[in-house]
Design a protein around this nucleic acid. Structure first.
Length: 294
DNA sequence: ATGCATGAGGT
DNA sequence: CCTCATGCATT
């Protein structure tokens, strides 16, 4: 397992430890933002934009176009890319301390009333977790970690990966999905489904990066798409009330939802969805992630 | 990074 | 109506 590849490139992180950029493996003189990245970086608020040799990005980090092997191929040095000298990098497999979480939620003490409580939502419905699952989870956790590192080493943002994934064949995923996968803010099931996709894509991306560059990352402006309802923004007061209700009962009846909506003066449907999302969020952030230090 | 929305599949 | 997987839009 852990077939990590040594990777170079330095990660730039902010105070929260979040990666906000990377230093290119090789400075690309041709890139516009490249110059900025080369300079010192004392400030913590600076927002660098690492540019992938093959891609032209706009200020939002979105792919505007790809520098293909077109005739007027500029930037002769762009092809340099990483001198496969990746060897020197420590690939300490720092195998994680194997966190066992066997009966993490063996709370069999829940007295079943009729309304599921928050505690019940979080706990396992039945049988304990078996070894197999635990192993799988660890594997995914490792991959997620690696994926992020390798993605950054390629100088790609979550958005770019999402666009590429959408542009190329195979399952398409958005920036949100990439983000959630990296954070494992999803169910184990989703993670297992995503892993192969990302694994495959990443391998290809690294290959393209290594060799010249194929403009397989084609993507023509997305279509208009339907009009989506504007996102409701609850007031802090409303959120407070909703949370209070949720703590009491996370699964209110239609009648109750109607009343709550009336009280807060919000669309009934909006309130219903709020509860749905609240329940879902609670679940997603309590499985794989539960034993993760965040 | 995350909040709300959507839609598919189930009861 | 619910859960789930996802994504658009916003913070």
């Amino acid at each position: 397992m852990s077939n990590v590849a040594g990777l170079t490139g330095q990660l730039i992180t902010n105070a929260q430890g979040q990666v906000i950029g990377t230093l290119p493996l090789l400075v690309n003189p041709a890139s516009l933002a490249g110059a900025a990245a080369a300079s010192a970086l004392p400030a913590q608020g600076l927002q660098l934009q690492t540019v992938c040799p093959q891609l032209l990005l706009n200020s939002q980090g979105q792919i505007i176009a790809t520098i293909g092997n077109s005739p007027t191929a500029a930037a002769p040095s762009a092809a340099s890319v990483l001198p496969k000298a990746t060897v020197p990098l420590t690939l300490t497999k720092t195998s994680t301390p194997v966190l066992k979480f066997t009966s993490l939620t063996s709370t069999g003490a829940i007295v079943c009333g009729d309304m599921p409580t928050v505690g019940q939502l979080v706990s396992k419905p039945q049988s304990a977790v078996n070894e197999e699952e635990a192993i799988n989870l660890e594997e995914i956790r490792e991959f997620a970690k690696n994926f992020k590192i390798r993605r950054l080493s390629l100088g790609l943002t979550q958005t770019q990966v999402g666009q590429a994934l959408t542009a190329t064949e195979g399952p398409a995923y958005s920036q949100s999905a990439i983000c959630r996968f990296e954070k494992l803010d999803i169910t184990p099931k989703s993670a297992q489904k995503l892993k192969p996709v990302l694994e495959r894509w990443l391998a290809e991306a690294e290959l393209w990066n290594q060799k010249g560059q194929q403009n397989l990352m084609e993507f023509v402006g997305g279509e208009p798409s339907k009009k989506r309802k504007r996102r409701t923004s609850f007031t802090p007061q409303a959120i407070e009330v909703l949370n209070t209700y949720f703590e009491k009962n996370s699964l209110p009846t239609g009648q109750e939802i109607t009343e709550i909506a009336k009280e807060l003066n919000y669309d009934r449907e909006v309130v219903r969805v709020w509860f749905c999302n609240r329940r879902q969020t609670l679940k997603n952030t309590s499985k794989i992630n539960l034993f993760q230090v965040r």
